[in-house]
Design a protein around this nucleic acid. Structure first.
Length: 576
RNA sequence: CGGGACGUGGCGCAGCCUGGUAGCGCAUCUGCUUUGGGAGCAGAGGGUCGGAGGUUCAAAUCCUCUCGUCCCGACCA
């Protein structure tokens, strides 16, 4: 492809509204353009990358027997009402009415549509199992789009759905997907983890997320190098480090009220009293469903992970407003504590505070439920008796519950997920088949998603340098970038043209920069766009010599024309 | 939904505080020169300053409202 015929609007400067590396580089490189908040256009280069990713996805999905089809994105609301999600999902779903005032939605995902189709067309166990997939637009009215194409409101997704007779069948479909996903992300050149993920409020089902480590990610995962345990911090279990020792005499072993004027935060109390944060108990008043106050306790140096509390309570929660704290406890935020509370406030403490836990039975400092006052010498189990649960967010330095090795916590971007649905959608939509005995049984489903645009963004986040993108070779927009120094030089044109054709015959896609630009402009663009191999056709073209160089680094070599194909092939093999 | 910031030629920005003829760099167009790392010189075109209302003799500038975009937090089926 000639660059002079390619719509490739590159920019010298970073766009003003970009923060993430992938956002800046993809806009500058002419891959994407923003249309509205969280809505992007894919330009020719960007679309080529997407198509290469989609091709890899298709190959691997087809390899496990999945069948591609295409579903509508505009749905009648009825199916969503049937599964209860029309009401359960809030403003994240785009809703509209057609001309006859019929409720419609833009699909956020396609469980309903696939289950609906299955309910109409699948009759017998003989037709199972099935795996159907599509690569289709999804709409989610994110409260806050961000990071370029990292978090958007309209996006392409490969979603597949498996249909099995029973849980054993689902296990097989699930495993096939897991292996296919491993291959897809590996082929796309990503570093990634498969981690246990929160199956949501439905319980029972299992789910995994595929996560690409990058600081631009929005999730955190806990990883064990010892045994391979890997889980989203939303549910990662771990053993906290023991609390720091406190200085003898700073905390009594019996409960004592101490004045702590204006000391509301852990840091302030810790400094004022001269005790380490890990000797404090952080008391957080949360409101559960029905506005029932719940006091959640974690050690002063720990953070509450709200999703864990939600799972434990089986109820949504939110932090209490300051006036609700006063209503419930009679004291302002900052001096709240678990001792001598009325029975109608449920108190839940993190496992690390168990008397038999990492800290042992030891005195802590807590709020006194009295203004500008804390209690010292509070012993869990003696002075108050909470229920216990895993509430705190796992962090680096914790030890693995399984093997005792140190856990690390990393920032990651979710690039895919796999989920055992069971009969959550097949039952309400009556997707049933007859089994061998003639009994009607709901189909057991799984759903499996991949975000191709997130793969591309993650690839950029993981592979770039100060000059631009360094695409993994499997998903680069072109394999070889031919830079012709002088576009009007006939010898160079002939050489470039013949190299382009020769490499094309060998199966390489080439971008031939024949534009009447100065050399510097072309080099900068080539580096920005990041194709794996660069050829430079310049002043030695007349001597039948060109330069070959890998984008990822290494030497720039002068190569005679007849050896170019071999050299390019070798660099290609070596490219990441 | 809470907090913060920003909207000025295609892109990146200054001007606003202290009201008085709309500016800079890049890009674009023309000509000449240049041609291995985002060229030089000369010239040209292009903006009712996000929108509405208000104050004023006069508003990019001050006030009110509104829309859009970004960042932090909350949310994320």
């Amino acid at each position: 492809m000639r660059a002079s015929e390619l719509f490739m609007p590159t920019l010298k400067e970073d766009p003003a509204d970009a923060e993430a590396v992938s956002h800046k580089l993809l806009v500058r490189g002419g891959f994407i353009r923003q249309f509205a908040a969280g809505i992007y256009m894919f330009l020719p280069l960007g679309w080529r990358v997407m198509e290469r990713i989609n091709d890899i996805i298709r190959e691997e999905m087809n390899a496990i027997g999945a069948q591609e089809l295409s579903m509508p994105t505009l749905h009648p609301a009825e199916v969503w009402k049937a599964t209860g999600r029309y009401d359960a999902i809030g403003s994240e779903m785009f809703r509209l009415k057609d001309r006859n005032a019929r409720d419609m939605v833009l699909a956020m995902t396609h469980e309903e549509a696939f289950a609906w189709l299955a309910s109409r067309e699948l009759r017998s166990y003989r037709e199972l199992p099935q795996i159907w997939y599509q690569i289709q637009i999804k709409f989610r009215d994110e409260p806050r789009a961000k990071g370029g194409i990292l978090r958007v409101r309209e996006f392409l997704m490969k979603d597949s759905y498996s249909f099995d007779m029973d849980a054993e069948g689902l296990d097989v479909s699930y495993e096939m997907h897991a292996r296919a996903y491993d291959r897809i992300f590996k082929r796309c050149g990503l570093t990634f983890y498969r981690v246990e993920s929160d199956p949501g409020m439905m319980g029972g089902a299992t789910a995994h997320e595929y996560m690409a480590p990058t600081p631009a990610g929005e999730d955190k995962v806990a990883l064990c190098a010892g045994c391979g345990y890997a889980a989203n911090v939303e549910l990662a279990v771990s053993v906290a480090q023991a609390p720091e020792p406190y200085e003898e005499g700073t905390i009594p072993s019996d409960v004592v009220e101490v004045p702590t004027p204006e000391c509301r935060t852990i840091d302030e109390v810790s400094q004022f009293l001269g005790v380490p944060p890990s000797s404090l108990i952080k008391s957080l008043l949360m409101m559960a469903d029905g506005n029932k106050p719940v006091l959640a306790l974690v050690r002063g140096d720990h953070e509450l992970h709200e999703a864990k509390l939600v799972r434990h309570l089986k109820s949504d929660t939110r932090p209490a407003h300051p006036d609700e704290v006063i209503d419930a406890l009679g004291v302002e935020v900052g001096f709240v504590g678990p001792v001598n509370l009325s029975d109608d406030i449920r108190v839940i403490a993190d496992d690390s505070l168990r008397p038999g836990g990492v800290g042992g039975e030891r005195p802590y400092v807590t709020g006194a439920n009295k203004a500008h006052t804390h209690l010292c010498g509070v012993i869990v189990g003696r002075d108050f008796s909470p229920e216990f649960a895993d509430l705190r967010e796992a962090r680096s330095g914790d030890t693995c519950l399984r093997c005792g090795a140190a856990l690390s916590v990393e920032q990651v971007l979710e690039i895919g997920n796999i989920f055992k649905l069971g009969t959550k959608y097949s039952k309400p939509l009556k997707a049933t088949v007859l089994d061998e005995s003639g009994t009607e049984r709901p189909i057991v489903m799984g759903s499996y998603g991949i975000g191709p645009a997130r793969i591309s963004a993650a690839a950029v986040e993981q592979h770039y340098d100060e000059k631009g993108i360094v695409w993994p070779k499997s998903i680069a927009p072109f394999d070889v970038h031919i830079v012709q120094i002088k576009s009007e030089d006939e010898v160079q044109t002939k050489v470039a043209q013949s190299l382009h054709n020769l490499l094309a015959q060998e199966g390489f896609t080439c971008l031939w920069d024949d534009r009447p630009e100065r050399p510097g402009v072309k080099f900068k663009d080539a580096e920005l766009i990041g194709c794996p191999v660069r050829l430079t056709v310049g002043k030695k073209a007349g001597e039948r010599v060109v330069e070959v160089e890998a984008r990822a680094g290494g030497e720039r070599l002068e190569v005679p024309l007849e050896r170019v194909v071999a050299k390019v092939s070798r660099l290609w093999e070596e490219a990441p």
